[in-house]
């Protein structure tokens, strides 16, 4: 037991280190590169409009005169204490601008994750019951097709079908950013569906491959010889092992989900952080961009940590090595 705690502690420290590295990357991307890349980002025909003094001023504006490590430490401290500073133009607190959108996006992504996991589990099991069979082919082809469509197309087609033609949901989400979270949850249903339809394909492939492999393994064969029913073998014996490759990809999965939600939010006019990010980007609101990027990375790292715990619970080999190691 103690060694498991030990392992958890190591993971936690690792997560912390990864987040620190992430904030370094965000810092480098937002504060250092633009300064250094000032002339590089100006197309040749545009350099005509710059005087050398203006170029120097531009560099100064990005604060390149102060040493990098000092500036990074400041940003690091800000991010890790959740004090995200103020916006550049009106000096309004960044947190006020992004708190509600962040929560709303969290609701969207969290719900999408649950729905997608459920969907992937059901489809994965169904498809692996008879690999190469009609059902498997149908599911595999459908998920590949929905994956091949850009998410904003899937989203828009959903709006056209479910909102405009069938009138089941609103086509445009009117709820304000600070609306009651239950309203937000209801509003998120169609966006979640669009997100899942597009995003489930990849997870499905991973799970299906794992299931097929597991169902062909010796211990499943033994269980089969023992006369256990197929569905029982699938869920009790094959699934836990088959889920491990999928769980290993949790970081990518959650990161992909957050990326996808930026697009889907725009399609549905969902009051999430995606539009906040795009606006911050257009206005070079660097403190806001840093805060959003850091919080997104925090979500990914946290999800990955939880997935590690789940793997620990699912895989007897990992558990054993933790106890002995």
């Amino acid at each position: 037991m103690g060694s498991i705690m030990n392992m958890l502690g190591r993971r936690l420290i690792l997560s912390f280190a990864i987040l620190s590295l992430t904030s370094l990357i965000v810092f480098l991307g937002t504060e250092v590169l633009p300064g250094d890349a000032i002339t590089a980002t100006i197309p040749a025909e545009e350099l005509a409009f710059y005087t050398p003094e203006q170029l120097a001023d531009l560099r100064k504006e990005y604060g390149l005169d102060r040493p990098l490590p000092v500036r990074f430490l400041e940003v690091w401290e800000r991010l890790f204490t959740f004090d995200f500073g103020t916006t550049l133009i009106k000096k309004e607190p960044v947190l006020d601008h992004i708190a509600h959108p962040m929560i709303n996006s969290g609701i969207l992504a969290g719900l999408a994750m649950l729905v997608m996991l459920g969907l992937v589990l059901v489809l994965g099991i169904l498809a692996s019951l008879k690999p190469g069979g009609r059902l498997d082919t149908a599911i595999s082809a459908t998920t590949l097709f929905t994956y091949s469509m850009p998410d904003f197309v899937v989203g828009n087609v959903f709006v056209v079908i479910f909102a405009v033609w069938l009138g089941l949901t609103p086509a445009v989400i009117f709820a304000p950013t600070n609306a009651p979270k239950l309203t937000i949850l209801l509003a998120s249903l169609l966006p979640v569906a669009a997100l899942c339809i597009h995003g489930a394909a990849y997870q499905f492939r991973l799970l299906r491959a794992g299931m097929v492999e597991a169902l062909n393994s010796d211990y499943v064969e033994r269980a089969r010889l023992a006369g256990l029913p197929t569905w029982y073998i699938c869920i009790r014996h094959a699934l836990p092992v088959a889920m491990i490759p999928m769980l290993n990809g949790t970081a990518q999965f959650v990161a992909g989900l957050l990326s996808g939600s930026v697009v889907v939010e725009t399609v549905f006019k969902y009051p999430g952080v995606g539009s906040e990010l795009l606006r911050a980007l257009a206005q070079r609101e660097i403190p806001t961009i840093q805060a959003i990027a850091f919080l997104a990375a925090l979500a990914v790292v946290t999800a990955n940590f939880i997935a590690d715990l789940a793997i620990l619970g699912l895989d007897p080999r990992v558990r054993a090595s933790a106890q002995h190691g």
Binding site: N156, V159, V160, A163, V164, G167, P170, A171, V172, F174, T266, V267, K269
Partner: peptide, 20 residues
Amino acid sequence: LEGYIVNSQTAVNGFRSGQF
């Protein structure tokens, strides 16, 4: 009276669905 900022596509969707 209510008003909402939308893009061109969302405007069409909202109008055809009867929201606007």
